[in-house]
Nucleic acid binder design. Structure first.
Lengths: 118, 118
DNA sequence: GTAATTGTACTATAACAGATAGTACAAAGG
DNA sequence: CCTTTGTACTATCTGTTATAGTACAATTAC
Protein backbone atom coordinates (compact mmCIF):
# COMPACT_ATOMS: atom_id res chain seq x y z
CA UNK A 1 0.00 0.00 0.00
CA UNK A 2 1.62 3.17 -1.21
CA UNK A 3 1.12 5.86 1.40
CA UNK A 4 2.89 9.20 1.53
CA UNK A 5 3.52 10.77 4.93
CA UNK A 6 4.75 14.31 5.49
CA UNK A 7 6.48 14.28 8.85
CA UNK A 8 6.73 18.08 8.86
CA UNK A 9 3.00 18.52 8.40
CA UNK A 10 0.81 19.88 11.13
CA UNK A 11 -1.61 17.04 10.40
CA UNK A 12 -0.81 14.12 12.73
CA UNK A 13 0.62 10.99 11.15
CA UNK A 14 -2.33 8.80 12.10
CA UNK A 15 -4.69 11.24 10.44
CA UNK A 16 -2.58 11.42 7.29
CA UNK A 17 -2.87 7.63 7.07
CA UNK A 18 -6.65 7.92 7.35
CA UNK A 19 -6.78 10.52 4.58
CA UNK A 20 -4.43 8.58 2.34
CA UNK A 21 -6.35 5.31 2.66
CA UNK A 22 -9.64 7.07 2.01
CA UNK A 23 -8.13 8.67 -1.07
CA UNK A 24 -6.82 5.32 -2.35
CA UNK A 25 -10.28 3.86 -1.85
CA UNK A 26 -11.98 6.75 -3.64
CA UNK A 27 -9.50 6.48 -6.49
CA UNK A 28 -10.30 2.78 -6.86
CA UNK A 29 -6.72 1.78 -6.11
CA UNK A 30 -7.91 -0.08 -3.06
CA UNK A 31 -10.94 -2.22 -3.91
CA UNK A 32 -13.72 -3.83 -1.92
CA UNK A 33 -12.77 -6.73 0.33
CA UNK A 34 -9.10 -6.25 -0.44
CA UNK A 35 -6.83 -6.97 2.46
CA UNK A 36 -4.66 -4.09 3.63
CA UNK A 37 -1.31 -4.44 5.41
CA UNK A 38 -1.17 -5.70 8.97
CA UNK A 39 -0.74 -3.00 11.57
CA UNK A 40 2.81 -4.05 12.41
CA UNK A 41 3.72 -4.39 8.75
CA UNK A 42 2.56 -0.93 7.74
CA UNK A 43 4.23 0.52 10.81
CA UNK A 44 7.48 -1.13 9.83
CA UNK A 45 7.20 0.04 6.22
CA UNK A 46 6.52 3.62 7.25
CA UNK A 47 9.13 3.51 10.00
CA UNK A 48 6.63 4.47 12.66
CA UNK A 49 5.13 2.95 15.78
CA UNK A 50 2.42 0.27 15.49
CA UNK A 51 0.28 2.18 17.98
CA UNK A 52 0.09 5.05 15.50
CA UNK A 53 -1.11 2.77 12.71
CA UNK A 54 -3.56 1.15 15.12
CA UNK A 55 -5.02 4.57 15.86
CA UNK A 56 -5.42 5.24 12.14
CA UNK A 57 -7.07 1.87 11.54
CA UNK A 58 -9.44 2.46 14.45
CA UNK A 59 -10.49 5.74 12.89
CA UNK A 60 -10.89 4.20 9.45
CA UNK A 61 -13.07 1.47 10.91
CA UNK A 62 -15.19 4.07 12.67
CA UNK A 63 -15.51 5.84 9.30
CA UNK A 64 -16.73 2.60 7.76
CA UNK A 65 -13.79 2.41 5.36
CA UNK A 66 -12.21 -0.79 6.65
CA UNK A 67 -13.21 -3.81 8.68
CA UNK A 68 -10.85 -5.67 10.96
CA UNK A 69 -11.44 -9.40 11.24
CA UNK A 70 -9.64 -10.32 14.43
CA UNK A 71 -6.82 -12.64 13.50
CA UNK A 72 -7.61 -12.70 9.81
CA UNK A 73 -6.40 -9.22 9.01
CA UNK A 74 -8.00 -5.96 7.95
CA UNK A 75 -10.07 -5.45 4.81
CA UNK A 76 -11.57 -2.68 2.73
CA UNK A 77 -15.31 -2.32 3.18
CA UNK A 78 -17.61 -3.64 0.48
CA UNK A 79 -19.31 -0.28 0.30
CA UNK A 80 -16.74 1.82 -1.47
CA UNK A 81 -19.27 4.12 -3.11
CA UNK A 82 -20.34 5.59 0.21
CA UNK A 83 -16.73 6.38 1.07
CA UNK A 84 -16.13 7.97 -2.31
CA UNK A 85 -19.31 10.02 -2.21
CA UNK A 86 -18.57 11.29 1.27
CA UNK A 87 -15.10 12.36 0.18
CA UNK A 88 -16.45 14.15 -2.89
CA UNK A 89 -19.15 15.89 -0.88
CA UNK A 90 -16.62 17.11 1.65
CA UNK A 91 -14.52 18.63 -1.08
CA UNK A 92 -17.56 20.20 -2.70
CA UNK A 93 -18.59 21.72 0.62
CA UNK A 94 -15.08 23.10 1.09
CA UNK A 95 -15.20 24.74 -2.32
CA UNK A 96 -18.64 26.18 -1.70
CA UNK A 97 -17.62 27.78 1.58
CA UNK A 98 -14.56 29.28 -0.06
CA UNK A 99 -16.71 30.73 -2.81
CA UNK A 100 -18.86 32.36 -0.14
CA UNK A 101 -15.68 33.81 1.38
CA UNK A 102 -14.78 35.31 -1.98
CA UNK A 103 -18.24 36.76 -2.38
CA UNK A 104 -17.95 38.32 1.07
CA UNK A 105 -14.75 39.95 -0.15
CA UNK A 106 -16.75 41.58 -2.91
CA UNK A 107 -16.13 39.26 -5.85
CA UNK A 108 -19.03 38.55 -8.19
CA UNK A 109 -19.80 35.03 -9.32
CA UNK A 110 -18.64 35.93 -12.83
CA UNK A 111 -15.21 37.04 -11.61
CA UNK A 112 -14.85 33.92 -9.48
CA UNK A 113 -15.81 31.71 -12.39
CA UNK A 114 -13.20 33.39 -14.56
CA UNK A 115 -10.47 33.09 -11.91
CA UNK A 116 -10.98 29.43 -11.10
CA UNK A 117 -11.60 28.52 -14.72
CA UNK A 118 -14.25 25.84 -14.24
CA UNK B 1 -11.72 44.97 17.23
CA UNK B 2 -14.24 42.18 16.92
CA UNK B 3 -12.35 38.90 16.73
CA UNK B 4 -13.86 35.46 17.05
CA UNK B 5 -11.72 32.69 18.55
CA UNK B 6 -12.64 29.01 18.57
CA UNK B 7 -10.82 27.53 21.52
CA UNK B 8 -11.69 24.00 20.41
CA UNK B 9 -10.16 24.49 16.99
CA UNK B 10 -7.01 22.72 15.97
CA UNK B 11 -5.76 26.04 14.62
CA UNK B 12 -3.70 27.73 17.35
CA UNK B 13 -5.14 30.87 18.91
CA UNK B 14 -2.33 33.10 17.70
CA UNK B 15 -2.93 31.94 14.14
CA UNK B 16 -6.66 32.48 14.39
CA UNK B 17 -5.93 36.06 15.40
CA UNK B 18 -3.72 36.46 12.33
CA UNK B 19 -6.44 35.10 10.04
CA UNK B 20 -9.16 37.19 11.65
CA UNK B 21 -7.20 40.45 11.37
CA UNK B 22 -6.32 39.72 7.76
CA UNK B 23 -9.97 39.06 7.05
CA UNK B 24 -11.04 42.31 8.71
CA UNK B 25 -8.49 44.17 6.62
CA UNK B 26 -9.60 42.48 3.40
CA UNK B 27 -13.22 43.23 4.23
CA UNK B 28 -12.36 46.89 4.71
CA UNK B 29 -13.47 46.86 8.33
CA UNK B 30 -9.95 47.71 9.39
CA UNK B 31 -8.59 50.58 7.28
CA UNK B 32 -5.15 51.88 6.47
CA UNK B 33 -3.22 53.56 9.29
CA UNK B 34 -5.93 52.66 11.78
CA UNK B 35 -4.63 51.86 15.23
CA UNK B 36 -5.44 48.39 16.51
CA UNK B 37 -5.69 47.40 20.19
CA UNK B 38 -2.58 47.26 22.34
CA UNK B 39 -1.25 43.78 22.93
CA UNK B 40 -2.23 43.77 26.59
CA UNK B 41 -5.65 45.19 25.81
CA UNK B 42 -6.57 42.60 23.18
CA UNK B 43 -5.24 39.86 25.42
CA UNK B 44 -7.44 41.08 28.23
CA UNK B 45 -10.50 41.33 25.97
CA UNK B 46 -10.01 37.82 24.63
CA UNK B 47 -9.13 36.44 28.03
CA UNK B 48 -5.80 35.10 26.83
CA UNK B 49 -2.14 35.68 27.51
CA UNK B 50 -0.39 38.77 26.12
CA UNK B 51 2.41 36.56 24.81
CA UNK B 52 -0.09 34.86 22.54
CA UNK B 53 -1.28 38.17 21.10
CA UNK B 54 2.32 39.29 20.74
CA UNK B 55 3.03 36.19 18.67
CA UNK B 56 0.06 36.97 16.43
CA UNK B 57 1.14 40.59 16.01
CA UNK B 58 4.69 39.52 15.15
CA UNK B 59 3.31 37.26 12.43
CA UNK B 60 1.01 39.97 11.11
CA UNK B 61 3.93 42.38 10.93
CA UNK B 62 5.99 39.81 9.07
CA UNK B 63 3.05 39.44 6.67
CA UNK B 64 3.08 43.18 6.10
CA UNK B 65 -0.40 43.63 7.50
CA UNK B 66 0.43 45.79 10.52
CA UNK B 67 3.24 48.03 11.69
CA UNK B 68 4.23 48.47 15.29
CA UNK B 69 5.52 51.91 16.25
CA UNK B 70 7.37 51.27 19.49
CA UNK B 71 5.57 53.15 22.19
CA UNK B 72 2.95 54.66 19.92
CA UNK B 73 0.97 51.52 19.32
CA UNK B 74 0.29 49.23 16.37
CA UNK B 75 -1.26 50.27 13.09
CA UNK B 76 -2.73 48.77 9.95
CA UNK B 77 -0.43 49.01 6.94
CA UNK B 78 -1.13 51.63 4.31
CA UNK B 79 -1.03 48.95 1.63
CA UNK B 80 -4.28 47.14 2.20
CA UNK B 81 -4.74 46.11 -1.43
CA UNK B 82 -1.73 43.81 -1.30
CA UNK B 83 -3.11 42.07 1.78
CA UNK B 84 -6.51 41.69 0.17
CA UNK B 85 -5.12 40.38 -3.10
CA UNK B 86 -2.91 37.89 -1.36
CA UNK B 87 -5.87 36.60 0.62
CA UNK B 88 -8.01 36.27 -2.50
CA UNK B 89 -5.26 34.49 -4.40
CA UNK B 90 -4.76 32.04 -1.57
CA UNK B 91 -8.44 31.15 -1.59
CA UNK B 92 -8.43 30.84 -5.38
CA UNK B 93 -5.44 28.51 -5.22
CA UNK B 94 -7.20 26.41 -2.59
CA UNK B 95 -10.26 26.09 -4.79
CA UNK B 96 -8.18 25.20 -7.82
CA UNK B 97 -6.34 22.41 -6.05
CA UNK B 98 -9.60 21.00 -4.78
CA UNK B 99 -11.00 21.01 -8.29
CA UNK B 100 -7.97 19.02 -9.39
CA UNK B 101 -8.68 16.57 -6.59
CA UNK B 102 -12.21 16.15 -7.87
CA UNK B 103 -10.96 15.62 -11.41
CA UNK B 104 -8.59 12.95 -10.12
CA UNK B 105 -11.61 11.27 -8.61
CA UNK B 106 -13.13 11.08 -12.06
CA UNK B 107 -15.43 14.08 -12.10
CA UNK B 108 -15.67 16.07 -15.31
CA UNK B 109 -15.50 19.85 -15.29
CA UNK B 110 -19.18 20.00 -16.23
CA UNK B 111 -20.22 17.90 -13.24
CA UNK B 112 -18.08 19.98 -10.92
CA UNK B 113 -19.54 23.19 -12.28
CA UNK B 114 -23.04 21.89 -11.68
CA UNK B 115 -22.27 20.74 -8.14
CA UNK B 116 -20.63 23.93 -6.94
CA UNK B 117 -23.10 26.10 -8.83
CA UNK B 118 -20.75 28.90 -9.86
C1' DG C 1 1.72 -29.65 17.70
C1' DT C 2 3.97 -25.52 17.43
C1' DA C 3 5.65 -21.41 15.68
C1' DA C 4 4.31 -17.24 13.47
C1' DT C 5 0.91 -13.81 12.54
C1' DT C 6 -3.21 -11.35 13.49
C1' DG C 7 -5.87 -7.70 16.07
C1' DT C 8 -6.39 -5.91 20.63
C1' DA C 9 -5.34 -3.78 24.99
C1' DC C 10 -2.85 -1.98 28.28
C1' DT C 11 0.84 1.25 30.95
C1' DA C 12 4.53 4.32 30.87
C1' DT C 13 7.24 7.68 28.81
C1' DA C 14 9.10 11.03 25.54
C1' DA C 15 8.66 14.90 22.51
C1' DC C 16 6.67 18.84 20.82
C1' DA C 17 3.84 23.00 20.13
C1' DG C 18 0.99 26.04 22.23
C1' DA C 19 -0.22 28.77 25.93
C1' DT C 20 0.49 30.79 30.43
C1' DA C 21 2.93 33.30 34.23
C1' DG C 22 5.88 36.60 35.64
C1' DT C 23 9.33 40.01 35.35
C1' DA C 24 11.86 43.69 33.36
C1' DC C 25 13.30 47.49 30.30
C1' DA C 26 13.24 51.72 27.30
C1' DA C 27 10.60 55.25 25.13
C1' DA C 28 6.74 58.32 24.65
C1' DG C 29 3.14 61.20 26.44
C1' DG C 30 0.36 63.47 29.52
C1' DC D 1 6.05 61.07 38.03
C1' DC D 2 2.88 57.86 36.33
C1' DT D 3 0.82 55.33 32.72
C1' DT D 4 0.99 53.12 28.41
C1' DT D 5 3.39 51.33 24.66
C1' DG D 6 6.17 47.52 22.39
C1' DT D 7 9.80 44.34 23.40
C1' DA D 8 12.37 40.60 25.47
C1' DC D 9 13.33 37.31 28.31
C1' DT D 10 12.91 32.71 31.41
C1' DA D 11 10.27 29.22 33.42
C1' DT D 12 6.45 26.37 33.56
C1' DC D 13 2.15 24.06 32.42
C1' DT D 14 -0.80 21.52 29.31
C1' DG D 15 -2.62 18.57 25.85
C1' DT D 16 -1.80 15.95 21.82
C1' DT D 17 0.99 13.01 19.35
C1' DA D 18 4.13 9.44 19.10
C1' DT D 19 7.06 5.93 20.97
C1' DA D 20 8.37 1.83 23.80
C1' DG D 21 7.30 -2.26 25.73
C1' DT D 22 4.54 -6.03 27.15
C1' DA D 23 0.86 -9.24 27.00
C1' DC D 24 -3.13 -12.08 25.41
C1' DA D 25 -6.37 -14.88 22.50
C1' DA D 26 -7.37 -16.61 18.07
C1' DT D 27 -6.11 -18.08 13.61
C1' DT D 28 -3.02 -19.60 10.10
C1' DA D 29 0.92 -22.07 8.16
C1' DC D 30 4.12 -25.63 8.34
Amino acid sequence: MNIQIDYQSRIPIYEQIVLEVEKLVALGILVSNEQIPAIRELAYNLGINPNTVKKAYDTLEKHGVIISKSTKGTYITDNIDIVKNRLINNIIDDIKSKIVELENLGLKKEEIKKKIDV
